[in-house]
Simulated scan of single mutants.
Amino acid sequence: MTAKHYLPLLILPLVVLAFFAWRRYGPVNATAVPGRWSAEQAQIWYDKEPWLVGANFIPSTAINQLEMWQADTFDTITIDKELGYAEGIGMNVMRVFLHNLLWEQDAEGFKQRIDTFLQIADRHHIKIMFVLFDSCWNDDPKPGKQPAPVMGKHNSGWVRAPGTKRLNELSTWPGLKAYTQGVLTAFATDKRVLLWDLYNEPTNSGYGDGVLPLLTETFRWARAVRPSQPITVCQWDDSRRVTAFAFANSDVISFHNYEDAPKLEKAIQGMSKMERPLICTEYMARTKNSLFSTCLPVMKKYRVGAINWGLVKGKTNTIYSWTEPMPNGQEPTVWFHDIFRPDGSAFDQRETTLIRQLTATNATAKPVAQR
């Protein structure tokens, strides 16, 4: 998922946003939001779970979050089939993106579809990490019919949430608050939900520190709900203020790492000093030498949750690299992300065999009781 989209024209409005938000909400600092779980509470929660292994999930028939969840394109048949592929190799968690427009478009219907999705995942013994906001890829998201994929282009249709316009316009934030608190309240005690990831790669797309005001408010909105599940925001780049804020306010530490195994291990050793559970919520980019064969054993060694990008080749086109599109649509010899083809066959059966072997020692979970 990670790709830096530097947009110089965004810098000035984001600086202005940060200034006015500072005047309204006060200074943003690493301890701004009360309600964080203690390290002991987080560890007790983590110790009750098996080693967490899974993928970032979107069905192969959806190009983005909106197409996955909107009523006319909510594809339960494909979701069920593809979560079955994950279950078959021992995966027990999926990271799944939501979107504020889905709540604003049809809150009750959206909640019902989330519940249906959770029922399907639970039948496959898979818990869900939901992501509320995202700074990556295409700006200005719109509900309704979504575009067709651009041939050979990675994530050509993925959309940001909420997008730059609403990030810059504080008058629209009550709608974002209603979405955040509405979704969390609806599933705050649902055992099928593993944890909440409030904001994916918040500084991406050139946002930098300009995202801090909304990120801070999102933590405040979420903490006010007091969900039974932990809350996190990932570390993914070298933005010191945002990373410090995310680390200081997350119940469990999540991070992205598309480096080779030695660099991954070094990062894990550094973050372990925070003495909180660690979950890598994005990894595995084959042409960058971030591989199942080398990285997954490292994460098992340290009992770090391991959630790779991509399960099934589909409309997101994430078999292609972030920076090397293939306009002719030819399948790359080495896939960038993803594990399975839509028919359930593996890109590399050695990988699925390894994942199955490494997850074999996990206890088989039983479907949790309904809410």
Score class of each variant (00 low, 15 high):
T185H: 04
A32F: 02
H99E: 05
V96H: 10
A30Y: 05
K273A: 14
H337R: 00
M326Y: 12
V298W: 12
Y85F: 15
Q146I: 00
P162A: 04
F20P: 08
G208F: 10
I114P: 06
W322Y: 01
E331N: 06
F255W: 12
W236H: 15
Q105E: 15
Y199K: 03
K48D: 00
W22P: 12
E82K: 12
T232G: 04
I11D: 10
R240Q: 13
F74K: 08
T78V: 14
G305S: 03
F219L: 10
L118V: 05
M151N: 00
N64P: 00
S272P: 04
F19Y: 15
A30L: 10
A188T: 08
K266A: 11
A285H: 04
V368Y: 01
R303D: 04
R303P: 00
D260K: 15
G84C: 07
S60A: 04
S171L: 02
S345E: 14
L98D: 05
T216R: 15
W322H: 13
T76A: 02
L14M: 11
G206R: 05
F74P: 01
E82Y: 03
T287S: 06
G84R: 11
T218C: 02
M91Q: 15
T232A: 14
H125W: 11
K111S: 00
N92D: 08
R113I: 06
G344S: 04
F187T: 03
S156Y: 01
P202I: 04
D106R: 14
E259L: 11
N138H: 12
D47V: 01
P213F: 04
H5R: 14
R276M: 07
D139Y: 08
V312R: 01
G182C: 09
D122Q: 03
H99S: 03
I319H: 05
F347T: 02
R341M: 04
Q43Y: 01
F292V: 08
L354I: 12
A186E: 10
T78R: 09
D197A: 10
D106A: 15
M129N: 00
L214M: 15
F347S: 05
Q112R: 13
A222K: 09
Q112H: 13
G310M: 02
R371Y: 03
T352R: 07
R95N: 12
R286C: 13
L176A: 10
L212S: 05
I307M: 11
N249V: 03
D343Y: 04
M151V: 14
R286D: 07
L264A: 09
S205R: 08
R223E: 13
L9C: 06
F245L: 03
T232F: 07
G344A: 01
P147E: 02
